[in-house]
Design a protein around this nucleic acid. Structure first.
Length: 256
DNA sequence: GCGACAG
DNA sequence: ATCTTGTCGC
């Protein structure tokens, strides 16, 4: 596969001891297991979760704050949200985002009491040079329908304001551009267990003028407000465990 | 050869 | 993504 981040650049950013060639083989192996058909009835979907992560740099360590929010389409509201706070050791490297964010993303997801039917993840799914963006990585590992929703393109070329994202060399459709916001585009791609058409349809039903659909937007805003609160607490030397249990205690449950 | 590059 | 200063609009 051609275009996409320069491999030498990627290699230079990877931590010592991390074998890029092995990671690529893993990505390709998992990518071959991605299901691009609907494993759920799109017209019967009500609960959709969205996950996002915020970061804080504190004394040579990086803290990740992840939030998962479950939105009910029928009730037009967020019915629950969960969060997780912990250390992040892997750096951000284009095409290797999942090696950094899967830990916080999965942990926040596991804390949801009511499991959603589909999960929206901030990043790409199949629109990735090795066909395994974080949304697909998450879906293949947990075998849960997922959709990748991103604010910018990592790989591929967009055709028009509202249309397909094509692989530069093979011309295959790897994603779709949607106009959730008036100006900025939103890129949707299959994560796992759902067709591209259904993924686009579902995302469009949860757009409210912002680039991100409601579930991810709620998680994004919540993660940032938790971050502001945590930043203040950090001045007084608080441990990860304390921060995490405080965050855990603040999780919202609007079920009853 | 230069530049691109999810979060 | 994060950091940061200034400006616009409700």
């Amino acid at each position: 596969m051609s275009r996409g981040p320069n491999e030498n650049y990627v290699k230079s950013r990877v931590p010592r001891g991390f074998h890029l060639d092995v990671a690529r083989k893993i990505q390709m192996a998992l990518a071959s297991r991605v299901v691009e058909e609907d494993l759920i009835n799109i017209n019967n979907v009500d609960l959709v979760a969205g996950i996002d992560v915020a970061y804080i740099n504190h004394k040579d360590t990086e803290i990740g704050i992840s939030v998962a929010s479950t939105y009910s389409i029928s009730r037009s509201s967020i019915i629950e949200w969960s969060c997780w706070v912990g250390s992040i050791i892997f750096p951000y490297v284009p095409t290797l985002l999942s090696f950094r964010e899967l830990k916080p993303v999965v942990n926040a997801y596991l804390r949801l009491r009511t499991k959603p039917q589909v999960v929206l993840i901030d990043g790409h799914g199949r629109a990735h040079p090795y066909r395994l963006g974080i949304a697909s990585h998450f879906g293949v590992c947990l075998r849960i329908p997922t959709i990748g929703v991103a604010k910018s393109l990592l790989y591929g070329r967009m055709e028009g304001t509202e249309g397909p994202v094509l692989d530069v060399s093979t011309n295959e459709v790897i994603g779709w551009t949607v106009q959730c916001a008036p100006t900025k585009p939103t890129y949707v791609s299959v994560g796992y267990g759902i067709s591209l058409g259904s993924a686009v349809n579902l995302v469009k039903r949860m757009c409210v003028g912002s680039q991100m659909p409601i579930p991810i937007l709620h998680s994004h805003n919540t993660a940032n407000s938790l971050k502001r609160r945590i930043t203040k607490r950090l001045m007084g030397e608080t441990t990860f465990e304390e921060l995490d249990s405080e965050c855990k205690a603040s999780m919202g449950n609007y079920l009853s």
